[in-house]
Design a protein around this nucleic acid. Structure first.
Lengths: 210, 210
DNA sequence: ACTCTTGTTGATCAGGCGATCAATAAACTG
DNA sequence: CAGTTTATTGATCGCCTGATCAACAAGAGT
């Protein structure tokens, strides 16, 4: 990286701010949310710790913001990945497929850190709540879309949404911490969702194949 | 507590060691695993930080040990709670019932801390693995017992065991962090287990009533 | 009662953390 | 080119962490 020579230059607040946010995200993803310290960010950007503080209201805010940015980016990425599906059932299959993919373990680890750290960092806890809700809202929208389109029946979309999210998070967490590949849990999750939506068995499996 | 006057007395290694372990468990349960510092334990016991160090190989070992003790105690407690059930199906129902009870949220929080902290504390990571395996072994035993007794059919007990644990941990984690009472998820989990074990719908619900 | 073992202390080290503030220098403005 | 703004620095504070070590004293053994 030629960032080192560039970093000494005096930069606009926007540019420097973006640089700091980027470094924070990179540190969080590679070393965890609690490796996110003033000095670590400063070292990565190539500036003084004082400058990092100058650009951030507080460290706990930076942690919360970094977590939010990472998770929001993942939501966007997943939404984009699913948007192309012609039917909601296909979208649900693709959603399960991608959420239980091993490539998401980096973000899963961020979630684990956030759940733990959130107890001592109110800003982070608030952001965790916001992002969990964002996921839930997204899933509720998807479920209602399928229901109103007549693809399946859903009694309580909000409840089912966070049940499903809880299940997926639990399985990915276990896979990340100990049991390896979360991808092996796809059939189980498909079966659960098919059952809850009164879909024919295999409906979501076929969806994933296409 | 009159512990304060007692704590100045010179005690046997076993006695002092037990005192320290107890204090560590109490701190972990009330303030989280990372509030478990040499000074916090020392203050709670009423001795010098140096004495705590004298009794422990290292702080990361104390954290690992404390986590293990708390979780092992919970396993024992749950096992004792279930042991009385006349059939395995009833035991499974009782298991789901107690694991998704709000009273377990204190230990759920410990799990979240351990998953996060385990990445920087190898001793803790090893202990997390051991305790996750202990849970899985317990559940596998239960499932095989029911299968060999002809109560239900299970194809891959080890796989089903950790799927089930993942689901339950995910739902309790979500409930603890944001969505409140995990007890509302009992019907869902019962349905999933009934389906996976080819039990008639409602078999586990009736179990919980008795 | 005297000795010896060892539980216990107090002081202290080295390192990390977030945060503050005056001083510097680079870029923009007139 | 001179003057003003402000991005950036370096030094430093206060607090926390785990850990070490010589010195002390309580209790067990004789």
């Amino acid at each position: 990286m030629s960032t080192l020579s560039d970093s000494n230059r005096r930069k606009s607040p926007a540019e420097r701010g973006a640089e700091i946010s980027l470094a924070a995200r990179q540190i969080a993803l590679s070393d965890g949310l609690d490796a996110l310290t003033v000095r670590a960010v400063a070292a990565r950007v190539g500036v003084t710790p004082a400058l990092v503080v100058h650009y951030q209201p507080s460290m706990s805010m930076l942690v919360a913001g970094t977590f939010g940015a990472i998770v929001a980016a993942e939501i966007d990425e997943v939404v984009a990945e699913i948007m192309g599906c012609p039917t909601t059932v296909l979208a649900l299959g693709a959603l399960i497929d991608t959420l239980l993919s091993p490539k998401r373990s980096a973000v899963t680890v961020i979630w684990l850190d956030a759940w733990s750290l959130g107890r001592r960092n109110p800003s982070l806890a608030a952001e965790v709540g916001r992002q969990m809700d964002a996921w839930q809202v997204f899933l509720v929208t998807l479920l209602r879309q399928g229901a109103s389109g007549g693809e399946f029946v859903v009694a309580d979309a909000p409840a089912l949404a966070w049940q499903l999210l809880g299940i997926i998070d639990g399985l990915t967490a276990h896979a990340t911490v100990r049991y390896g590949d979360a991808g092996r849990q796809r059939p189980l999750v498909r079966t659960i969702v098919e059952h809850e939506l009164a879909l024919p068995a295999g409906a979501l499996t076929c969806a994933a194949e296409s």
